[in-house]
């Protein structure tokens, strides 16, 4: 298994870069993963990452993209509740990229 190093500590990741054990997640993991994608996380990114973590905590799944956009629109305002906004923040796709930064498993049904 490969791993990433955050603050001197190693965290296992699977072959697609998802954190192996979500209970080990620390915010620094998201920063390091983002840096590997040449991205610097802003408050807007963190809104989505934190939302995903809360959603997972409650429902034990990562939401599908249409569920995510609807819920973000409701929580953070209509102008943010669309996939364009989310793709601007996470160009590789909010499900794949934001979920990975959030330490969640790959979303069900995400190909």
């Amino acid at each position: 298994m490969s791993s990433i190093t955050v603050d001197g500590k190693e965290y296992g990741v699977d072959e697609e870069g998802y954190l192996a054990d979500l209970s080990t997640w620390v915010p620094g993991i998201a920063d390091v993963m983002a840096a590997q994608d040449d991205l610097t996380l802003t408050d807007e990114h963190w809104d989505i990452i934190n939302f995903l973590r809360e959603y997972y905590e409650e429902y034990q799944i990562a939401p599908a993209i249409r569920v995510l956009t609807k819920a973000i629109g409701k929580k953070l305002g209509k102008e943010k509740g669309n996939s364009k906004y989310l793709y601007e923040l996470f160009p590789y796709g909010p499900a794949k990229q934001a979920c990975r930064y959030a330490g969640l498993p790959k979303p069900t049904g995400c190909v």
């Binding site: 409650e58 429902y59 034990q60 799944i61 939401p63 569920v67 609807k70 819920a71």
Partner: peptide, 13 residues
């Protein structure tokens, strides 16, 4: 894994 909380998400879907 206790996946029963996921049934609460079905409404969102």
């Amino acid at each position: 894994k206790n996946f029963s909380p996921t049934f609460n998400a079905l409404g969102d879907y």
